[in-house]
Each structure stands twice: as structure tokens, then as C-alpha cells.
């Protein structure tokens, strides 16, 4: 099947190579490009904002120091950063759990309820959100109406003032971009 390929893919690839090559301005660009994604993962995985900010900073520090372990030919920069984020978050959670167990043992506090979304699901959902934000505006609008508002393609066409075939194409291409992103960077197996 044909896969949608977009200019943003090429931009991301160029950034990945610059990052791997040790260009410090590429670190800043990587932060601008993926900082929101990484931070969203940390915020949703950790109970406190302060921990999440600490974790986000740690991800980029670790990534920069460990950039020799990143090979743009083997995976995307965004996916690699999210992998680091998962390890950083897991370390913080382990430390926090130990502390909590100690506190509970001392105070007999009830345990905090477990988060029901797995890290895999969270990563995938954030990737979709990131990919959605980077769709072309007309694709994003068509996909949004079809996905979230449950409109048929005929209703999407009418809402956007487009011919039926164009609305279909926007929906199909938008969906293909999201799918590709999940297949490239996603955590969940197919």
C-alpha cells in the first residue's frame, strides 16, 4: 500500500542526522520539535508537575549524552526520545514507589490507585496527537470531523464545502499519515 510521505518527515530526518552528528543547535531544535511530546508523556505519567519537568529535562540531557547510541537509520528521533522518556519515568516511579511503600509502612496510608492507561497506549495516543497537529489543515479538519464528530464523508464534504471525492481523499490520507506514524514510532505491536 502506498504510504503518505510528507515534508515534515524529511525535516524530522534532517534534524535526526544533525542531532546524531552532535550539532548543539540541533539539540535545541529537537527540544522545540519534541519537547512538548516528551513533556506530555512525563506529565501524564507522573503525579507532580515538578517531577514531570525534572523528567523532561533529564530525557534531553540523557539523549544528548547518549546520542552516539542513536542511529537515524534504525528509528526516528521522536521514537528514540520517547523510549528514553519511558526509562526516565520508570526510574522515577520505582524510586517513588519505594518511598511510598516506606511511608505506607510507617503511616499505613492507603495505596494510590494504579493508572489504567499503559505506557504503550499513552505513547501511541500522544504520537497520534502530535501527528494530527502536523497534518495539513484541510486533512486535519476532515479527519477531525470524521474521527471525533462521527460525520460521514458526505457530511464532512458538506461541512467543508468540498466535493465528495476530495473529502474522501483527505480522510484517507490523514488516516494514512497517522497510521504510518504509529508504525514507525508506536509502542503497541500491530
Amino acid at each position: 500500500m502506498l504510504r503518505a510521505r510528507r515534508a515534515s518527515d524529511d525535516t524530522d530526518l534532517a534534524l535526526a542526522h544533525a542531532f546524531a552528528g552532535g550539532d548543539e543547535t540541533a539539540l535545541r531544535e529537537a527540544y522545540d520539535r519534541f519537547g512538548g511530546l516528551v513533556h506530555a508523556f512525563c506529565v501524564r505519567s507522573l503525579p507532580s508537575r515538578a517531577d514531570a519537568e525534572e523528567a523532561t529535562a533529564q530525557v534531553f540531557v540523557n539523549a544528548w549524552r547518549g546520542r552516539s547510541g542513536f542511529d537515524p537509520a534504525r528509528g526516528s528521533l521522536g521514537g528514540w526520545l520517547l523510549g528514553i522518556a519511558r526509562r526516565v519515568v520508570a526510574d522515577i516511579c520505582t524510586a517513588a514507589a519505594r518511598e511510598r511503600a516506606l511511608r505506607e509502612a510507617l503511616e499505613q496510608v492507603r495505596p494510590v490507585e494504579e493508572e489504567s492507561t499503559s505506557p504503550d497506549q499513552l505513547v501511541d495516543r500522544l504520537l497520534v496527537a502530535d501527528a494530527m497537529a502536523r497534518l495539513r489543515p484541510e486533512q486535519r479538519q476532515a479527519v477531525g470531523l470524521a474521527f471525533y464528530d462521527g460525520l460521514t464523508h458526505a457530511q464532512v464534504a458538506s461541512a467543508m464545502g468540498l466535493p465528495l471525492g476530495t473529502a474522501k481523499t483527505h480522510i484517507r490520507r490523514g488516516l494514512a499519515v497517522l497510521r504510518r506514524r504509529l508504525e514507525v514510532d508506536g509502542a503497541a505491536p500491530e
Partner: peptide, 14 residues
């Protein structure tokens, strides 16, 4: 996955 995604923006941290 997309329908379950929380499609708020992903702003940069402070």
C-alpha cells in the same frame, strides 16, 4: 488509538 487520544496541544514545558 486516534479516537482515544487526548488531542490537547502538546505545549513545550516552562
Amino acid at each position: 488509538t486516534a479516537r482515544r487520544a487526548d488531542l490537547t496541544d502538546l505545549p513545550l514545558p516552562p
